[in-house]
Design a protein around this nucleic acid. Structure first.
Lengths: 141, 141
DNA sequence: CGTTTCGTTTACGTCAACGTAAGCTTTGCT
DNA sequence: AGCAAAGCTTACGTTGACGTAAACGAAACG
């Protein structure tokens, strides 16, 4: 029990289940990310142990997914980030990729805005039809 | 030639190629939509002939896709729409579904806005790092 | 000492919306 | 008559991000 606690405090490593509970993902997901070289848990015997670094990466992965990055894009960003220790070249490349992604997202939002406006107006039409029906019915009574 | 012209004027039916050119879709797409019961072209021998109704449905299908509906959702909406001939019940159900979808889209846009803002701020940080590096280097010279 | 529980590997399955290819028939044009 | 274009059917391939199942090893528990 002391060992476990010390491990938790010093090495700060987590089992796959702890990871799953913490980040709300399945074991399959973590193993999948490892197979895609997004995570690099160490091995204690056969078992995976996820380090602080893995947790930091996973956070970025999940954040990246929210941004709409694909896992491959995320991997490249992580590689850039952890590769050179924050060389200016690496950072500006990261910035480029992020910029592209940002442009994508803003285009996406623009389309979404159009679609929303469009759908609203269509709904307006349908509502009018319903109103007319009611009105007609009311008028007929 | 007269037959073709009369067909075009009276039945107003189109071949698959005319459809493709008109709506910028591939034959595969039209056959696929038919297999999914989104379109119901009539048959002249072996060939498909798309009626005015099919064209109206296809317009709605493509519009629906822009809205982010899945083909299955679109099929259900089309079924509702063409089932009862615009009964108020059908229309208001259509309206319900559209309302749900609209809510989805607006939630999606909200998330997107957050993600965009977030990404921008992240990029700001990276830019600052780059600026500092340059500044530091400049200052060192 | 048996049996749940947690973990592992390997590998096939899933979903959406088509793309793509093979092989055949029909139509139109010369 | 001949041949290319247009259509048809059948069916396997694609992409991303995992789900799911089988079959096994190790450990914790009572």
């Amino acid at each position: 029990m002391f060992d476990a606690m010390r491990d938790l405090m010093t090495e700060e490593t987590m089992t796959i289940r702890q990871m799953c509970d913490t980040f709300e993902v399945t074991p399959r997901t973590l193993r999948f990310y490892e197979s895609k070289e997004l995570l690099f848990p160490i091995r204690e015997g056969q078992k995976r142990l996820f380090t602080r670094r893995d947790r930091a990466r996973l956070k970025l992965i999940l954040r990246g997914k929210r941004f709409g990055f694909s896992l491959e894009e995320i991997r490249q960003l992580l590689d850039l980030y952890y590769a050179g220790d924050q060389q200016a070249t690496q950072l500006s490349r990261t910035l480029d990729v992020a910029g592209d992604r940002l442009a994508d997202m803003e285009r996406q939002r623009a389309e979404l805005d159009l679609a929303i406006a469009d759908l609203k107006s269509q709904m307006g039409l349908v509502e009018d039809m319903l109103t007319n029906v009611t009105t007609t019915k009311d008028a007929a009574e």
